[in-house]
Simulated scan of single mutants.
Amino acid sequence: MKKTKAALCVALMLLTALLFSQSSAKVCVSAKGRKYHTANCRTIKSSAITTLTKEEAIRAGYEACKVCRP
Results as ranks from 00 to 15, higher is better:
35 K>E: 07
23 S>D: 08
5 K>Y: 12
17 A>V: 06
62 Y>D: 10
70 P>W: 10
32 K>D: 08
12 L>E: 11
67 V>M: 00
6 A>G: 12
67 V>C: 05
6 A>V: 09
11 A>T: 05
47 S>V: 01
32 K>I: 08
18 L>G: 15
35 K>P: 00
6 A>K: 12
60 A>K: 08
23 S>E: 11
69 R>H: 08
23 S>A: 14
51 T>E: 08
24 S>D: 15
15 L>R: 01
45 K>E: 02
64 A>P: 01
5 K>M: 13
63 E>H: 08
9 C>L: 15
59 R>W: 02
65 C>L: 05
1 M>R: 15
24 S>V: 15
68 C>G: 02
53 T>D: 11
54 K>E: 07
19 L>M: 09
12 L>M: 10
46 S>W: 01
64 A>T: 03
34 R>D: 09
56 E>Q: 15
58 I>C: 04
49 I>G: 08
53 T>F: 05
7 A>V: 08
7 A>I: 05
8 L>M: 15
43 T>P: 03
29 V>N: 02
15 L>W: 04
7 A>W: 13
57 A>D: 08
67 V>A: 01
46 S>P: 05
13 M>D: 03
36 Y>V: 00
43 T>S: 14
12 L>W: 04
19 L>I: 14
32 K>Q: 13
21 S>G: 12
10 V>S: 06
5 K>D: 07
40 N>I: 03
49 I>P: 02
63 E>F: 10
9 C>M: 12
52 L>R: 05
9 C>I: 15
29 V>I: 09
36 Y>K: 05
51 T>S: 11
62 Y>R: 08
12 L>Y: 12
52 L>V: 01
5 K>R: 11
29 V>E: 00
27 V>H: 07
17 A>H: 09
24 S>L: 14
66 K>D: 11
6 A>C: 14
68 C>K: 01
64 A>N: 07
27 V>N: 07
23 S>W: 12
59 R>L: 08
39 A>I: 07
60 A>L: 09
11 A>Q: 12
17 A>L: 14
2 K>I: 11
22 Q>E: 10
21 S>N: 12
47 S>A: 11
29 V>W: 01
51 T>W: 07
56 E>Y: 13
15 L>V: 12
31 A>Q: 15
37 H>K: 00
24 S>M: 14
66 K>W: 13
29 V>K: 02
70 P>T: 03
7 A>D: 13
57 A>P: 00
63 E>K: 11
39 A>V: 04
24 S>Y: 15
41 C>V: 01
51 T>I: 11
